[in-house]
Structures are given as C-alpha cells and as structure tokens.
C-alpha cells in the first residue's frame, strides 16, 4: 500500500514538476550559450566583466530560489490538499494507516526536493563548465584551493551532498507545520504559517547561539583568515553544527507529527 500511495503522490505533481525543471534547465543552457560563452575573461575590462557576472549571477540565483520554492510549494500543497482539505475524506478512508500516509508524503516529498536539488546542481554545472570559465578559473585556482582547504570541485560536491541531505529536514519541517496547524480547526493555514515562522525563529536563534558558543560566527571569518585558518574550516564548522541541529530538530518534529497524525486528526 505504501508503494501505491507514493506512486499517486508522485503522479499528482509530476507534470508541473517536470515542466518547471525542464524550463530551468532550458534557461541555464540558454544563458550559457548566449551570455557566458561570449564572456572574454582575458581581454574585457574588469568593470564590464563584473557587471555582466553580477547580472547573470543574480538572475540565476533568482531562478534557483524560484525553482526551489516551486518544488517546495508543490509538496506543501499536495500534503495539505491530500490530507486536510476535502480530498482528505477520501485519503483518510482508504484502507491505509495514518503513518503510511505520512511516510508516503515524506518519501515522495523528499524524492522531489532531492531531485530538484540535483537539477539545480546540473544547471549550475551547465553554467560554469564552459571552456572560458574553466580557463579563467585556473588562473586563481591555487589561491581558492588554499582558502577552501580543498579543490573547488570537492567543495562543490560536499556542498551538493549537504543540500541533498538538508532536503529531508525541509520536508519534515513543512509537514510538521501543516500538521500542527490542523490542530486549530478554525485557522489551519494561519496556524501552519505561525508554526513555520516560530520554528524558523527558534532554528535561527539556536544556530546563532551555537555558532557563538563554538566560535564559528560568520562575522568573524576575516579574523580566521588573518589567523591563517582557511575559510573552509569556518564553513565546515557552521555546516557541521547546523547538520547536528537539523537532525535533532527533524527527529523532534517527526515525533510530534507522528503523534498528531496517529491520534489527533480531526477533519471538520
């Protein structure tokens, strides 16, 4: 039954998901061919180069954020609509348990978020893999490698793996907020949003607190560099901390969601 649930969850958003991601990849290819491939890193003036790169970068960051938001909205609406709107009348009367519903949503949601991250990674790769970019980068490679404490590709791969892993906490946190929201039947969506902001606030506070406690405040990174420590150490410290925090929070959020789904679902 879990397999069938996952199948229908994936099917429900497949068309839009594929469309969005195909558009994104097309945009990346388009950008590479029309703009990046034409950049001349050696002969252009620094001023025009910086302007062009700034425009392209901000455009691509905007697209990446939009795509990520799109995937997130797809799984969020699927979860809410399928379990807590009128469609819930069918979902909750299928011969499956609440936990199977929850896990089906976690697995399908994670698959979509992870896949979205992979596509974003591929898009970035398309953007930066041109010969002119690679050649330009090779001139500053030793410096960067030293600062990072590893080659940029290992760094990118690590960051990518971390992002893929972080998707799970996004998914669980989203479901947690919606599920908490439905405890307040009059204001489900409002309370889900409130839960979202409160959780985010708590996470921000905790990570800031921990960062200070362990001395990894990003504001002090320049100090570390002058100490001769690579940026990487500060970044990895922050990432390790936030991973740790993420795991604990995800587990807590999962447990609460699990209990609510099992004992407290009231469709009004």
């Amino acid at each position: 039954m879990l397999g069938k649930l996952i199948k229908y969850d994936l099917k429900a958003s497949a068309k839009l998901f594929i469309l969005l991601h195909a558009l994104f990849l097309a945009a990346c290819i388009f950008c590479r061919m029309l703009f990046i491939n034409r950049l001349d890193f050696i002969h252009s003036s620094e001023q025009s180069l910086v302007t062009a790169i700034a425009i392209i970068t901000s455009l691509m960051i905007f697209l990446i954020v939009a795509l990520n938001l799109g995937s997130w909205l797809l799984i969020t609406f699927r979860f809410y609509r399928n379990l807590f709107s009128r469609e819930g009348y069918l979902s909750w009367t299928l011969p499956v348990s609440g936990l199977q519903h929850l896990w089906s949503k976690i697995i399908s949601g994670y698959m979509y978020m992870a896949l979205s991250t992979v596509v974003i990674g591929a898009g970035v790769l398309i953007l930066v893999s041109g010969r002119n970019v690679v050649e330009a980068y090779s001139t500053i490679e030793p410096e960067v490698t030293e600062e990072l404490g590893m080659s940029i590709s290992s760094f990118a791969v690590s960051l990518f793996l971390y992002s893929i892993f972080a998707c799970i906490s996004t998914v669980i946190m989203t479901y947690f907020c919606i599920t908490v929201g439905q405890l307040f039947p009059g204001h489900r969506i409002l309370c889900a949003l409130a839960a979202y902001f409160i959780t985010n606030l708590v996470v921000q506070f905790l990570s800031l607190f921990l960062a200070f406690a362990f001395g990894y405040s990003p504001g002090y990174s320049s100090a570390f560099i002058s100490d001769g420590k690579p940026i990487a150490e500060s970044i990895w410290g922050t990432i390790t901390l936030s991973t740790f925090l993420m795991i604990i929070l995800s587990i807590l959020q999962y447990i609460i969601t699990h209990i609510i789904i099992k004992k407290k679902v009231n469709l009004l």
Partner: peptide, 15 residues
C-alpha cells in the same frame, strides 16, 4: 474497518 466500509461524504472528495 476501512476495507469494509464504503463512505459517500456530503461533499466532493476526489481530486
């Protein structure tokens, strides 16, 4: 029990 109960809600319940 859901296997043996067939339920018609008072509202549209399908996607």
């Amino acid at each position: 029990t859901k296997k043996i109960v067939s339920y018609l809600p008072d509202r549209s319940f399908l996607n």
